[in-house]
Design a protein around this nucleic acid. Sequence first.
DNA 1: TAAAAAATACCGAGTACTCGGTATATGAGA
DNA 2: TCTCATATACCGAGTACTCGGTATTTTTTA
Lengths: 215, 215
Amino acid sequence: MDNTSSIKIILVDDHKLFIDGLCGLLCTQPDFEVIGKASNGKEALHLINKTFPDVLIIDLNMPILDGQAASEKMISLFPSIKILVLSMYNNNSLNTSLKTLGIKGYLPKDTDTELLFCVVRDIAQGKSYFKQTESFLTFQNKFNADDDFLKKHNLTIRELEILKLICKNFSSQQIANTLFISLFTVDTHRKNMIQKLNVDKKTGLLNFALKHNLA
Amino acid sequence: MDNTSSIKIILVDDHKLFIDGLCGLLCTQPDFEVIGKASNGKEALHLINKTFPDVLIIDLNMPILDGQAASEKMISLFPSIKILVLSMYNNNSLNTSLKTLGIKGYLPKDTDTELLFCVVRDIAQGKSYFKQTESFLTFQNKFNADDDFLKKHNLTIRELEILKLICKNFSSQQIANTLFISLFTVDTHRKNMIQKLNVDKKTGLLNFALKHNLA
DNA sequence: TAAAAAATACCGAGTACTCGGTATATGAGA
DNA sequence: TCTCATATACCGAGTACTCGGTATTTTTTA
């Protein structure tokens, strides 16, 4: 690509409002051109067969072939493809697996638009960029640091501790043993969380926690 | 509001890329004016104290006072406020609780931009609109497409179907009812998956499935 | 066509969880 | 200092799940 032509971009995300908005943002840059959009991984595969981009921007969480599986397929079919992942998830183990796949960049969705522009240009030029999350060194630090999560969902420290162990597949008895409390106490905490988070059963808690990136 | 003035809108979402993009989309309409943005519920509360909108558009999933708690506070302080919820979640029980709160509208984030514009206008005029979810066809397509997952983990079509329902927090009895099979059959399939995937208990299955992005 | 795999169904004993509460003690906040 | 929130503990009845298997039928594969 010479300096006079624009960077051709394909956008892949199942949230139409998001990619329409993102398209509008990217088109404010004179050197960017959005050449296609897809709302799922399968559609994206078809699209790049027809119009190959300089950079493909994709969300991971999608129906009909998720972002990661789609990216794998695209990279195996077109090893030169440059993929930037935008995700609402935000952890360092994600970065490791994305690099392993051959993905060229990663940004969380709360990124500044100027940073996005810079990263798209860098990736188009062959560089890579993986936004580092602030240090979540251990599982425990993750929770300790996630004060927002507690506040956001009105949970207490103890409840979060118990939720963490539920995510690690501990039974209530195992949790009680680990925390040196009564099985009854664990059950009460679980019941309280179920009520606060408006979910159903222990599996609902697990579902919620994993979808909010607690494990 | 008379016909000659524009609809004043405030946007509340923690994904900066999303609200910047959404702002751009809304500003393409001559009768819309985005008068403020907030990245969390607390900021939104401060903002409406200063500049009251005709419509406030908010995501539910946010830090520092989530969308639902923030909406409750705003409605209690300003009962005339017209709130439209945009959410990545997509279920009908959400609609019921939003209406109970006094929220005027709900759309999922995969909504078409034209529908969004129409809904904003309707809400500004005092109407309400709550998008009803379609059936679970996309969920099913997702799994049908995920042939890789089956092969990778040595699961059968039926097992994956049951795993999918486990991820949606169905009990074994509910799964049996849904698939018109015996509870015993569900239990056997679950047991087989637990063995194949080398996990422990139903919660282990759920953990595995969610970490492999099956829901 | 036969073998293998998948889907289905069953069982009993035991463990785990759920649901609806109630209750007391401690620490934090107003 | 008082109120409120949090943490702890308890209960019984009922439902759900787990763990070992076994077994038959149907579908797929070689």
